[in-house]
Amino acid sequence: MTFALGGLISTSTITNAAEIDRPALAPMTINAADNASARTLVPSVFPTLVPEILTAPKPVPATFSSLDAAVAAHAVGEAGNEEALRCLATTVYFESKGEPLAGQLAVAHVVLNRARSGRFASDVCGVVKQRGQFSFVRRGVLPAVDAVNRMYRTAEAVAKVALASSWKSPAPNALFFNGRKVGLPGRLTKVALIGNHIFYR
Rank of each mutant, 00 (worst) to 15 (best):
A159C: 06
A159E: 06
A159K: 02
A159F: 04
A159G: 09
K160D: 12
K160L: 11
K160V: 13
K160Q: 14
V161K: 00
V161F: 08
A162K: 06
A162H: 04
A162F: 09
L163T: 08
L163D: 00
A164Q: 12
A164P: 07
A164H: 13
S165Q: 15
S165M: 12
S165E: 13
S165Y: 05
S166F: 08
S166Q: 13
S166V: 02
W167F: 14
W167K: 03
K168D: 14
K168M: 09
S169N: 04
S169G: 08
P170I: 01
P170K: 06
P170G: 08
P170D: 05
P170A: 03
A171Q: 00
A171G: 02
A171T: 03
A171K: 01
P172T: 12
P172R: 10
P172F: 06
N173A: 08
N173Q: 09
N173E: 05
A174I: 00
A174Q: 03
L175H: 02
L175M: 12
G179L: 10
G179A: 08
G179R: 14
R180T: 13
K181E: 15
K181P: 01
K181C: 06
V182N: 04
V182G: 07
G183T: 13
G183Q: 15
G183S: 12
L184T: 15
L184A: 14
L184M: 14
P185L: 09
R187Y: 09
R187H: 06
R187T: 11
R187W: 10
L188C: 07
